[in-house]
């Protein structure tokens, strides 16, 4: 007890206390505890569109990222010439901050950006990719930027997972008649399950928090939930509603993580 006391103190100070005060703030009002903050949050015209945008982004982005990351990891493992160089190149976005990534892609998608320059140079009409009334292209821009930025996290986790699988299993599958897709489906993916689970939880929680990329690319035109938190806190100066939003994001993240754990439970480790 004495030995873990310092960590308990730190956890309480740096984690427990802010969380409790955040929860209190979310339910706080001038006349004591209230749910008015949540009502205000729900009535805001941006709220439901931000929820819709966030969910759409997650549903479209995560499968793309996992397929890409898995393909990249399998390519690395096949050890083509220069595979270690590819590894570092593919891992670079991991080190780029999301705001910087957003700004980089802004230079591509903005009205006088690289993409339109290319279009103009081949004689095509430039497009306002990030315009308010062009929802599909705006979504695609945010999606591409986020896929570029955050796939490397999944990639690194999958590479680590692949490295921990002994080659014997795949060799055995090959000897017993399994081709590439059979090996992938019946052997590699099931053995990769713990890594995929970790990556999925991490990636989904982080995707709920997607913010800076969309802000840099579209400003308020493509609202996301955490972006709304930011707007309530800094723009509208209402810390209570901002806390309520943050609480919603936390609750959804927790439910998702538990859901993944349950859904992807590994039965082979069950007790005898």
């Amino acid at each position: 007890m004495l030995l873990i006391a310092p960590s308990i103190v730190f956890m309480t100070l740096l984690f427990g206390w802010p969380m409790v005060s955040g929860i209190l703030q979310a339910f706080g009002g001038p006349e004591g505890l209230t749910t008015a903050n949540f009502t205000r949050m729900g009535q805001d015209p941006y709220f439901w569109s931000s929820v819709g945008n966030t969910l759409l982004l997650i549903v479209v982005m995560i499968p793309i990222q996992f397929v890409l990351a898995l393909a990249m990891a399998l390519l690395i493992r096949a050890k083509p010439r220069g595979s270690s160089v590819y590894f570092y190149i593919w891992a670079i976005p991991l080190a780029v901050s999301d705001l910087a990534a957003g700004l980089v892609w802004l230079t591509v998608f903005t009205d006088r950006g690289y993409l339109n320059s290319v279009l103009a140079s081949v004689g095509l009409e430039p497009v306002s990719w990030l315009a308010y009334d062009n929802y599909a292209s705006m979504f695609m821009a945010v999606l591409i930027a986020e896929v570029w930025r955050a796939t490397s996290l999944v990639f690194v986790i999958v590479v680590a997972g692949l490295q921990s699988i002994p080659k014997d299993y795949e060799e055995a599958a090959g000897v017993f008649g399994a081709g590439f897709w059979d090996r992938l489906w019946h052997v590699t993916l099931p053995l990769l399950r713990p890594s995929l689970q970790t990556a999925l939880i991490l990636r989904t929680i982080l995707a709920f928090q997607t913010f800076a990329v969309a802000l840099a690319l579209t400003g308020q035109n493509f609202p996301l939930v955490v972006g709304e938190t930011y707007r309530w806190y800094t723009g509208l100066q209402d810390a209570n509603v901002a806390s309520a939003l943050a609480l919603v994001v936390m609750a959804v993240s927790m439910v998702t993580a538990v859901g993944y754990l349950k859904l992807l439970k590994d039965q082979s480790e069950a007790p005898r």
């Binding site: 060799e171 090959g174 000897v175 399994a178 590994d266 082979s268």
Partner: peptide
Amino acid sequence: PQDRNLSMVFQSYAVFPHR
């Protein structure tokens, strides 16, 4: 290997842990 019609017992057994 999958086109050779053989079977093999591995030193590490390589029994699939998830099956």
